[in-house]
């Protein structure tokens, strides 16, 4: 049996909203350590890797490792029925072909239960080595979302140039061109508002902005986003999920033909 309970069910709903535009279905790997998921988009340009550690749940029980094929589209629809302060329990009974989502209102007066059929999915797993990136930019996730949205107006691609002083996002297309430069924050009252840059080497990489905008669907999970970059290496775009884990998106760069 698998059973995991989250007092703040809305966190789980935000995780699903963060994933479901990039991947519509995925296999959840459940073990004693927690829940992990790795999935690529259909064109194999971007990948998402999710970790939710067991100690982040109020209660967590996983008697044996399970691979659960789940439609994220359907799960998202079910989770929309959850109240904003509801507690969420996810359960898979032994020998069952369904996942059960139970939602309980804070005053414990309302209790809803939905079942979603599990799917048989082919999953391809990519090994992603630990990487010492040349540059890690940390910035407010709302600011990153706004920049990606704005860059998409100008063109299909965005070039991210990072130096020790700042980071520049630039795009050009048929309508024209533009760029936004953010300087490293010198002093900020709140850490979540800061832009900080750890840099060993300056980098300039070009990415399809459409994917970056999909990654930004996960921005409501976290005040800050980390962008890790090295030349000729996929971008790693990370949002923390509270203290319990993270969503990491990987995106292959574009190269000059």
């Amino acid at each position: 049996m698998f059973e995991a309970r989250l007092a703040q069910g809305s966190i789980f709903a935000k995780v699903i909203e963060g994933l479901r535009e990039l991947v519509t279905e995925a296999t959840w790997e459940c073990s004693g350590n927690g829940i992990t998921l790795q999935a690529m988009d259909s064109s194999h340009v971007a990948l998402v890797s999710l970790v939710l550690r067991s100690d982040g749940f109020e209660t967590y029980r996983c008697d044996r490792n399970m691979s659960l094929g789940i439609s994220l589209t359907s799960m998202s629809k079910v989770l929309k029925m959850m109240g904003k302060d509801d507690t969420l329990t996810i359960r898979v009974n032994d020998d069952s072909d369904a996942i059960v989502l139970s939602m309980e209102s804070q005053n414990q007066e309302e209790f809803a239960e939905y079942e979603l059929r599990l799917m048989d999915l082919d999953s391809e797993h990519l090994g992603i080595p630990d990487t010492d990136y040349s540059c890690v930019v940390k910035m407010p996730s709302t600011k990153f979302s706004r920049i990606c949205r704005d860059m998409a107006i100008l063109g299909d691609s965005v070039t991210i140039c990072s130096t020790k002083d700042g980071v520049k996002f630039g795009a050009k297309g048929d309508v024209g061109q533009g760029s936004i430069r953010l300087n490293q924050s010198t002093n900020v009252d709140k850490e979540e508002d800061a832009v900080s840059i750890e840099l060993r080497e300056a980098v300039a990489l070009t990415f399809a902005v459409r994917y970056l905008n999909m990654f930004c669907k996960a921005a409501p999970l976290s005040n800050q986003v980390n962008l890790s970059m090295s030349e000729d290496t996929p971008l790693m775009c990370e949002f923390k999920v509270g203290d319990m884990g993270h969503i990491r998106f990987y995106l292959a760069p574009k190269i000059e033909d």
Binding site: L126, K254, I255, E256
Partner: peptide, 14 residues
Amino acid sequence: KQQQQTLSSFYHYG
């Protein structure tokens, strides 16, 4: 002209 790469150029299956 820019060309989009795929992740399999960087990471291996398995």
